[in-house]
Amino acid sequence: MDWLQAVLLAILQGLTEFLPISSSAHLILPSQILGWAEQGLAFDVAVHVGSLVAVLIYFRREVADMIVAWFAWVFKGQKSADGRLAWAVIWGTFPVGLVGVLLSLTGIVDNYLRSTSVIAATTIIFALVLWWADNKAKEARDEHSLGIKDILFIGCAQAIALIPGTSRSGITMTAALMMGLTRTAAARFSFLLSIPAIVLSGGLKSYELATGEEAVDWGMIALGATVSAVAALSCIHFFLILLEKVGFKPFIFYRLALGIVLIGMMLL
């Protein structure tokens, strides 16, 4: 992998991690369509760290308030909206953590689900599901109103995103819309829910890297993390603005177009 490929892949990761269009699909496809070499575990860890830094920077006040409120809830019994949101993020992470460990042990995703055909199918299917949810959305609640059933439903939806092409942000926003959240609240909760999800994913990849024999190019790692962080931070900011003005339609159409193009390429 050369420097140009590293920059482009880092931008792809930073932009698609938080857009409802699947970051995993966009990182897999260049190697399958353009013949690029696999970026390797070390680079995967770097771009995920960049995405994590971006979401922590953007939501730094919310995260700080949630941490303080959670400790006050646990140790002082002081319940609050921020503490409830912190619990929502924690409980919402359990399903993806459990399923992620099982899939990692079995190797199902790496061995069977990283193909262009799977990505094409999930890209189209979950675009249509998002379309349906967006059209039916009641938009009557914010992220602080989530109950345990809402949280577990969104959390289980997030676990489905371990299938490439699904989109973690897309499926969690879809599930949140189904639970009656506004578009902005659905996006904000999805972004907060991404923090432990990225930590778990990055931690697993880091363990695999530490126990493997892959050589680490630290210059490439630093470049990937930095570019990914800048791209992700810009993406979060402009996505929330765009969402209020035009909703999810542009991303739905993009997914449908991408899925059709992929199917066409397989048929050629």
Results as ranks from 00 to 15, higher is better:
A121D: 04
N135G: 15
H237W: 15
E213P: 09
V216I: 15
F251Q: 01
V53L: 14
L85T: 05
L209Y: 06
Y207P: 04
I252H: 00
A231R: 00
I148M: 15
S234G: 15
F253S: 13
L98F: 13
I119Y: 03
Q32I: 09
L52N: 04
W70Q: 13
L162M: 14
F71Q: 12
A133I: 06
K205T: 11
L85A: 11
S201F: 10
I67Y: 03
P164L: 09
F75G: 10
T122V: 09
H48T: 09
W3T: 15
T93D: 06
E214D: 11
L209I: 08
L19N: 06
R60M: 11
A133P: 02
M178Q: 14
I124D: 05
I28W: 03
V230P: 00
A6D: 08
L19K: 04
S190V: 04
V55A: 01
T16Y: 05
Q158I: 09
M265Q: 13
L256W: 08
W218A: 07
R84G: 13
L262G: 00
A86I: 05
F43E: 01
L34V: 10
T166S: 08
C235W: 00
L52V: 06
G92A: 09
V45L: 08
K138N: 12
R84C: 10
S24A: 15
G97I: 10
V246F: 12
L56I: 14
I151P: 00
T166H: 05
V101H: 05
S169V: 07
A46P: 01
Y58R: 05
A10D: 05
V230L: 11
L105R: 14
L243R: 04
I151R: 02
L29D: 01
F59W: 09
V63R: 01
A6K: 01
L146Y: 04
S104W: 15
D134S: 13
I33G: 09
G165A: 09
V45P: 00
A88G: 08
A157R: 00
L233R: 02
G83F: 00
S228G: 05
L19E: 06
F191T: 01
I21T: 09
A37R: 14
A120K: 00
L146S: 07
I28A: 08
H26G: 07
W87H: 11
F248V: 12
S23F: 04
L4T: 15
M265G: 12
Q5I: 13
A175G: 08
L256Y: 09
G147M: 10
D142Y: 07
G97M: 12
L41A: 11
L233N: 03
I33Y: 10
I119N: 04
L105D: 14
I11E: 01
G212C: 09
L181D: 02
V261G: 00
I163Y: 02
Q78P: 08
P250V: 08
L41V: 14
L192V: 09
Q32M: 12
L146D: 04
L240P: 02
I67N: 03
H48F: 08
W87F: 15
T211K: 13
L146F: 10
F126T: 08
W131E: 11
T93P: 02
E139P: 07
G170E: 03
T106K: 10
D134I: 06
Q39Y: 11
M179T: 14
Y254M: 06
F126I: 10
G219A: 03
L9K: 00
V227F: 01
I252S: 02
H26A: 08
S117K: 14
V49G: 04
I263L: 14
G264A: 07
A81L: 12
